[in-house]
Simulated assay, not measured.
Amino acid sequence: MKRVALCVALIGVVICLITGCKFKDPSIPGHSGKPMLSFKKVEGITFTEVRRQQNGLSFNEYGYHLSPDWRLRFVSSDSVALYSPVKKRFLNFPLSCGIDSVFNTNRSFLRMKHMSKDSLVFELLEAKDDSLDIRGTKVYMLFYADNYIKNVLHTNAATLQRSNRKDSLFVKQLIKRADSSLTNAFAALTPVRLTSTRSSITVKKKKTIADFLLNNYNTSDDYMNPVYNITINKADSDFDYAFSAYVDKEGKLIYNTPITPFTEGRYKQRYVRLSKAIMNTYLKLYVKVQPGQTLGVPHTTLISLYLHGKKS
């Protein structure tokens, strides 16, 4: 019965978001009679995100870069235009505004923290399963109006989006830790680059195709979890191995652990021995490794390697 009641309550909240009703449930403290959020006073103004911050930083401890990549324009009370870098034009998306400054668009829940004709500040909210954490993620999206950037700040969005001194100091600490221990390796904003020096060996890095409609044009996994498929033709035997490896700041490959799941025992020992031998021969001899970098500084990072050997 409790689960049924919870589902009914959530359905009620969703209906309020979609229909624009006022939420007047006195059982929820502070929610009674709260006005609906409206973007009427900024409709028609084009805003560009210039900063996405978590505790004042654009990076977290895993090297994830909170990249500012939204451009938007509120069209009406139930529609917002979002810029697609793939289609190179604005596309209209449904806009659902709710109480407590919360709204939803393009599969994202956000809370409006500041709104003026010059700037906007939104806080990202985390939605999981059938619940929404209204406590917030402490990740804030800062937008400036295009007209404000050009005619008041006399600059451009690219300049405003650059990493600042606070970011640089934070990244330097991450690099210092990564260089002291492999286990402190973090994702490089400019990933490791592997280049074959032999025609019989091909290297292909897995690349996410940005699609505004399908994955919110988020390609961060390309540097957070870099994957490389390496085919070795004219090998001594046919084989397939998958394992992770560290790449230190000098570009040295250091074996980490198999990716392929299997039980402990002799098979795993043999797998590690053979895959490590291939890394220490074919890869170290015939594949040039350029270490990953963040803000122009090389550092230790972790990559995944899928090796395919073809004897014929």
Rank of each mutant, 00 (worst) to 15 (best):
G44R: 14
D69M: 06
V80P: 01
S96K: 07
E49H: 06
V80A: 08
R71W: 00
L95D: 00
L95Q: 00
N104Y: 14
F74R: 08
E61D: 14
F47E: 08
G63F: 08
T105L: 00
R73F: 05
S58Y: 01
C97S: 12
S76R: 06
M36P: 10
Y62D: 15
S32F: 15
N92G: 07
I45H: 05
G63L: 09
K41G: 04
L82D: 01
F93V: 03
S79G: 08
G98V: 01
R52M: 11
I99G: 04
H65R: 15
K40F: 09
S79D: 14
S38H: 07
V80D: 06
L91D: 02
F47D: 08
N55K: 15
T46M: 07
K34Q: 03
N60F: 08
L72R: 11
K34W: 02
E61F: 11
S32T: 10
F47I: 04
V80L: 06
F47M: 07
T48D: 10
Q54E: 11
F74G: 06
L91I: 13
L66P: 01
R52C: 11
M36C: 08
S79M: 12
V86S: 12
K41Y: 07
Q53I: 08
S96Y: 15
L72T: 08
V75Q: 14
K34H: 00
V50S: 01
V102T: 07
S96D: 09
K87W: 08
Q54Y: 12
N60Y: 06
T48I: 10
G56D: 11
D69T: 10
R71L: 02
M36S: 06
K34I: 02
Y62T: 13
T105I: 03
S96M: 14
W70G: 02
H65I: 10
F103D: 01
R73K: 15
N60I: 09
S76Q: 05
K88W: 04
F90I: 03
S108R: 11
L82P: 03
N55L: 12
Y83N: 02
A81L: 03
N55Q: 14
L95A: 05
I45R: 04
N92L: 05
Y83D: 07
V86G: 07
F103G: 00
K41M: 13
S101M: 13
A81I: 00
F47S: 05
K41N: 13
F103E: 01
F74P: 02
S84E: 07
G98S: 06
V50M: 02
Q53W: 03
F93M: 10
P35Y: 04
I45G: 03
F39A: 11
F90G: 05
T105H: 07
S108I: 06
D69P: 01
E61Q: 14
V80S: 08
V42Q: 10
L37A: 03
I99T: 12
Y64C: 08
Y64W: 11
I45V: 13
N60L: 09
S77C: 05
M36R: 15
F74K: 09
S79C: 15
G33V: 02
S76W: 02
F39G: 05
S77H: 13
L72H: 02
S84Y: 04
F109A: 04
K34F: 00
D69R: 10
Y62H: 11
F59K: 09
Y62G: 05
W70T: 09
R51N: 03
T48W: 03
F39M: 14
V80Y: 04
K87G: 02
K41I: 12
L91N: 07
F39Q: 12
